[in-house]
Amino acid sequence: MHRNTNQAGSWRRPVWAALLGLMLAVGTAATALAGDWPDRPVTLIVPSGAGGGTDQTGRLLAERLRARFGQPFVVVNQGQGGGVVGIGAITGARPDGYTLGILYNFAHYKPLGQADISAGDVTAIAQYNADPAGFHVHRDSPWRDVRAALDALKADPAAHTIACAGGCGGSWPVAVASLLRAWGVDPAAARMIPSQGAAASLQDLAAGGVDVVPCSLPEARALMDAGLVRGLAVFGSERLAAFPNVPTLAEETGLTLDLGAWRGLVGPAGLPETITAQLEAAMADIVADPGFRDAMAAHGFGVVWRDGEAFAAFMRDQETTVRAVLRDLGLTRAKP
């Protein structure tokens, strides 16, 4: 590229100088050398479409990580294949600290035969969030409460559609399928509809394309505020502070199902200890920071802290429990 600069200098005309200068910019962006981490922008892969909960919390983190490390943390949304592409991009990246990602409920991919990912494929840095699932219906839905919806589903499971708000096997469909099973409905008989993520499923709900979307409350907030979507219930045992009008599942049905989504910062397996330690310390500060907690609360996200070690243990535990749930619910095929 140096040769180009010299040529540009020898040409008197600014049009050419501008063009070559921009080409130089393309080159530098691509060829920055590795040195003291981080000396160039870090890619933060969000394995979901823009607008969903993983995306929103990922952006809150990216902003603060940039402030702390002085390099942009560029959010890249890869929601294709129900998140498989994004997660594959994280686990397949070089463990040099320049590709990190947000990981969420991943344990269903392997038993469902969608992707070969296990807790050992990532370096756990820290968990920062957990959100209970919700039960959302269209404004004009005949169901006024979650019992009415469950009874209708029980009467004829195949007559209604339930969006997966992502791949069918993720946190939300697992939660809603567990609820159906607890209510005596065969989840395998319900029509589960995959999508690119919660945002896409909610759009389909607003358009009347599906009957139920089981994503988290914060993800549905914009459409709830617009009056297009109603939240009938939230999983877990307590109402969310940001959504005092949405009753808990326990209040409505007497069932206590503490299910939902969790999110944490991870890198590819084998991330150098020095980088992991820096990131873990930064995450501890961010999660403790009142500004971050306020921002998370303003968006309605729950803050949960697990350090790297506890987060890794939690993910290994998830693998066993989710596999058992999928088997119990008949979601796993005998042999994919």
Partner: peptide, 12 residues
């Protein structure tokens, strides 16, 4: 750059 086109981008 994080602005996935679609109706929700106008809400989000």
């Amino acid at each position: 750059h994080g602005l996935t086109p679609g109706p929700t981008v106008f809400l989000v």
